[in-house]
Design a binder for these strands. Structure first.
Length: 108
DNA sequence: GGATTGACGTGTC
DNA sequence: AGACACGCCAATC
């Protein structure tokens, strides 16, 4: 189980509260990966193939940009989901990202 | 088992 | 302000 970096990322992402967003770097840091933020995104690639639904749309880069929206079934899905959760998204970018940012290191 | 690959981050030009 | 370069590190081929 959790032998992979994946599962650790999946679990943490699943803990993200609705209406909140997090960044790859923050997640990686909380896992002790430090600067391996890319690994987080890499794991998220399998998020859509995971058995348990992973709110990957709540995970964006440090700029609040929906970098991985192209990996969703319909790319527009990510932006819509965020908006449905009460967030403001414009031009593939989360507005007030800092305000809605969910820090796993602090919340946990 | 070496080389390639990223849903990133930060710094520099 | 926008574009480019390098670093990190695990998974995949």
């Amino acid at each position: 189980m959790d032998s992979s970096f994946y599962d650790q990322v999946f679990e943490l992402v699943r803990l993200i509260p609705r209406g909140r967003v997090s960044s790859y770097g923050a997640i990686a840091k909380s896992l002790g990966a430090g600067g391996s933020a890319r690994m987080v995104g890499y794991a998220m690639r399998h998020a859509g193939l995971a058995d348990v639904p992973v709110p990957a749309h709540r995970v964006v880069n440090s700029a609040g940009l929906l970098t991985g929206k192209f990996h969703f079934d319909p790319p527009e899905r990510m932006q819509e989901l965020l908006i449905q959760e009460g967030l403001r998204v414009e031009n593939d970018k989360v507005q007030d990202f800092k305000k809605y940012f969910w820090n796993p290191l602090e919340e946990l």
